[in-house]
Write a protein that binds this DNA or RNA. Structure first.
Lengths: 225, 225
DNA sequence: GATTATGTACGAACTAGTTCGTTTATTGGA
DNA sequence: TCCAATAAACGAACTAGTTCGTACATAATC
């Protein structure tokens, strides 16, 4: 019957003990709840109910509500950064690479609305949980590396303006891509335009790419019309 | 004693009846609490305690917690839009007017962090309370009017690129100025740079102005170096 | 005297976290 | 190879404290 494998691995076909699976299932459910309702708005009982597990297990694995929130936050950052790592700008020219980076960032933010919402919630809390996490900060160094590489190549080719700061460039790209998701609801309501349609998103993406390129590329290298 | 003045105005030295003052005082305190803790995070008892009034009065004037929240939201929008109306770009050239508009928006957002936080919170709630408010939507039409006027003048002079959409321009300016406040905490923590210093803010403001100008102004009209 | 404005005390429902006990797996010795 | 001992994973019910909202009473003003 029970195979004498050293460890039952993560596979759990039948309903046997499955710590990893339970943990993961709790985090999945909690992610939705926290992203939807915030830290104070989320209800442990509600999370527990939607879990395949129980409230007892939440406290068993995560200690308290804040512990669960932190686990969710770390998981969200890890997942998104893993996705970002898939961007390959290897053979591209600086211009194409930059264009590709902005497009990718725009789409990536769009696809991970729950992550954006977690970051918004974290900012409401003055990033105090992010500060507690040793894990998260290590994940973000690479983001700068990508833009830095592209930028330096572009400057070397005389195509990009010199003297710009990679972190500030990252800030500007982030601002456009983040705002697109974070403020869509209020912006749409205020100006009576649904910005979530694929058509509207295509326009905003093109604009964002355009804006970044025009900022970085030397003006005389830009098309006159 | 009690002067028979038509109304005791807002001044309440002695403890006399003062509905307007009470209302206003409640909204002031509630604004801080909601901006700090969100809708679910804010505590009515805490708000009441910090008021010159009582919890009874909150329910008397605002019905329930959501009613108070909505009043706070409307008040925040009204105050900020009133402040924006002070921007005068009358005699300026399109270029200077545009520069001034972005600078002003950047500084204005920076000065009204509580408002930004309310908008963030509202976006977490999918703008459902903003939608309920008839008052707020009317306030935002003018914001577009300003950028539209500047833009059209610039196009007429052959200085700005034609074919851009004022609402989209407003979106782009907002994105930069909003993100600067909304994501300062996480961005600072993640990249180990305190972006709230006046020096950092000056840089980010300059960059934002620069980015918008380079996007709108025809490339051949931009300085080569 | 009627309406508006305000203070105090309280209750019903909710919520984070705990207690106690059970089941499943693992280990070590005979 | 079997079985007792131990540890890890889990469930149901409970508790202590919180939180929104209200009932009741009173003061000021027209």
């Amino acid at each position: 019957m029970a195979p004498k494998a050293a460890k039952p691995e993560a596979q759990s076909g039948v309903r046997t003990q499955d710590p990893e699976g339970t943990r993961h299932n709790i985090i999945e459910v909690a992610s939705e709840e926290f992203a939807l309702n915030g830290l104070s708005g989320a209800r442990i009982d509600e999370i527990a109910a939607r879990t395949r597990s129980s409230k007892r297990m939440i406290y068993y694995y995560f200690g308290d509500k804040e512990g669960l929130y932190l686990a969710v936050l770390e998981n969200a950052y890890r997942k998104v950064r893993e996705g970002e790592a898939k961007l390959d700008i290897g053979g591209l020219s600086p211009l194409d690479a930059l264009r590709r980076l902005v497009e990718f960032t725009f789409e990536h933010h769009h696809k991970h609305e729950d992550f954006i919402r977690m970051v918004m919630i974290e900012n409401i809390h003055h990033a105090e949980y992010l500060e507690k996490s040793k894990v998260i900060r290590q994940l973000n160094v690479t983001a700068i590396g990508t833009i830095e590489t592209i930028y330096e190549r572009g400057v070397a080719e005389g195509l990009f303006r010199a003297g710009l700061d990679p972190i500030e460039l990252h800030w500007q790209i982030s601002a456009l891509c983040f705002f697109n998701v974070s403020n869509r609801a209020t912006f749409s309501k205020l100006f009576g335009r649904d910005l979530s349609t694929s058509k509207a998103q295509a326009v905003l993406k093109r604009n964002s790419v355009d804006m970044v390129l025009r900022y970085i590329v030397r003006p005389e290298k830009l098309p006159t019309e």
